[in-house]
Write a protein that binds this DNA or RNA. Structure first.
Length: 205
DNA sequence: GAGTTCCT
DNA sequence: TACT
């Protein structure tokens, strides 16, 4: 029997209908045109991550060999400020996050057919009380989530286009990752792949 | 000092 | 990593 996610975890399958997904994707395309996707690197080793990423919001999550994981206000390649978070994403946060402060960061991850994300905790934010809100667009993925230690068991399930996930409560610090992408499971993205949007409150108060 | 998202 |  698969393990259950910790308390505070919510999976909302099909929360966004196709029209809402298309409208959101249009806004993401505009953001990516101004703040291009780039390939981030692991600290120390410089090994590239398999996902490509960019951000919108006043702060964006970045990593590189020299300085590691961090939030910063500008795109690492263009040195331009990140574009603002679209209002429809702020509305989603206001509806689902149950948190009195707006998110500063929206990480935009693009998964090609062979991209993955290893099990990790989101711990780079000063505010660990705010939930993390995630939106899936495009191809289905196999998402894995465990407990708040590496030793805890994990369980996995699929996330499809339009699904929304909220990591709140105990699940805010749960280890989680993406095992695999299922190519060809969505026609939302012309050339396939999966886009994941992750809204986070970074600074306290 | 140990731990930290890429580890098959 | 550059911090805890």
């Amino acid at each position: 029997m698969a393990n259950q996610p910790p308390p505070g975890f919510r999976h909302l399958p099909g929360y966004l209908n196709l029209e809402a997904q298309k409208a959101l994707l249009d806004e993401i395309r505009t953001i990516v045109a101004a703040a291009p996707l780039y390939q981030p690197a692991m600290p120390r080793t410089g090994k590239p991550l398999s996902v490509r990423m960019t951000n919108c919001g006043s702060l964006g999550w970045v990593t590189d060999r020299e300085h590691g994981y961090r939030y910063q206000p500008r795109h690492p390649l263009t040195n331009e400020p990140w574009p603002p978070i679209p209002q429809r994403l702020l509305n989603l946060w206001n509806t689902l996050a149950d948190y009195p402060h707006e998110p500063e960061a929206c990480l935009i991850n693009f998964y090609s057919a062979d991209a993955k994300m290893g099990l990790h905790q989101d711990k780079d934010e000063a505010d660990l009380d705010a939930p993390v809100l995630s939106v899936s667009l495009g191809d289905t993925c196999l998402f894995r989530i465990g407990g708040t230690t590496r030793e805890a068991g994990t369980g996995s399930f699929k996330l499809a286009s339009g699904d929304v996930v909220v990591l709140g409560g105990t699940s805010r610090l749960a280890f989680h990752g993406v095992d695999r992408i299922y190519p060809g499971t969505s026609t939302l993205l012309k050339n396939g792949g999966r886009v994941n949007l992750t809204l986070r409150r970074v600074m306290k108060g």
